[in-house]
Amino acid sequence: MTVVPTEAETRPLVAEPSAPRRPFSALNLVIDIVLLLFCVLMLLPLLFLISNAFKTPQEILAWPPTLIPHDPIVSNFTAVLTTTPLLRWIGNSALFATLSTICIVATSSVGGYIFAKFKFRSLHAIFILFLATAIVPFEIYMIPLYFQAQQLHILNSIWGLLLGYMVMGFGIFLIRQNVEQTIPDELLDAARIDGANELAIFVLIVLPLLRGALAALAVLAFFQAWTAFAWPLIVGTTKDSYTIEVGLALFQTGFTIDLGRLSAASTIVLVPSVVLFAILRRNFVRGITATGLKE
C-alpha cells in the first residue's frame, strides 16, 4: 500500500486557461460536442428539478411534461419555507458538517504526523488497525453505535450526529503519506537541535506545511457529513434534529403528491451545495484524487 507521488500533485487538475491550445480541428470540435452533450445529460436531472420547482400544480401533472415552466410561480418556495423548518435543517447539516470537519482535521493531522515521523513498531500496529477501520463501511457498525449514542443521551442532537463522524481512518492515511513525502526528517531534526520541543515543531513547522493537504481533507470531510443519510436518519427522530437530507426524505414520504413543493425544497438544498462546491472545487478535486492514488 504505497502511494506513488504522481503528477496530479504538481500539475493543476483543472486545466488552466493559460495552457497551450491545440490548433482547431474537426476532430476536436466533434469531441467537444460529444463532451458537451454528455455534460448536459449529467446536469439534466437537476435542471428538471429546478424547473419543476417553478411550475404550477396543473403544469406538473401535464402530459407531455414541459421542460421550461410556461407560467413560473414562486409559491412553491414560499409554501415550503413557511410550512417546514427547511432552514433549520440546512443549519443542522452545516453545523454537523463543520464540527465533523474540525474533528477529522484535528485527529488526522496529529495522527498522520505521528505515524509518519515516529517509526516505532508499536505505533505501526496501531496504524494498521486504524487503516483497517477505513475499509469497514459505516453501515456495518451503525446499529451498535446508535446504542452508544443512546446510552450517552445524545440522540436527537448535533452531538449524536457527530459521534459517527469524529474520525476518518482514510484521513490519517492521507496525512501520513503527505508528511512522508513533503516534510524531510532533516527539517525536524534541525529544529530539535535548535531546542524546539515536539509540540512546537508540530504546531509551528509541520502544520503550516500541511495546509494544502488539510484543506483537501477538510473539504472531503465536510461533504461526507453534508451528504450523510443513514446515520442522521436513525439518530434524529424529532423534527428539529433532522439534517437536510433526512428532512427532505421524510418530507417526500409524508407529502408524496406535492411534486412542486418537493422540487422547491430540493432546489433550496441544491443551491448551497453547488455553490459551496464551486468555491471549494480545487481543494475538493485534490482531496478526491488523493483518495484514488493509493496503489
Binding site: 453545523l95 470537519t101 488539510l214 477538510a218 473539504v219 465536510f222 459551496l276
Partner: peptide, 9 residues
C-alpha cells in the same frame, strides 16, 4: 478555502 469553510460553518 479552508478559511471560508470555517467561517461559513
Amino acid at each position: 478555502g479552508i478559511t471560508r469553510t470555517a467561517i461559513f460553518g
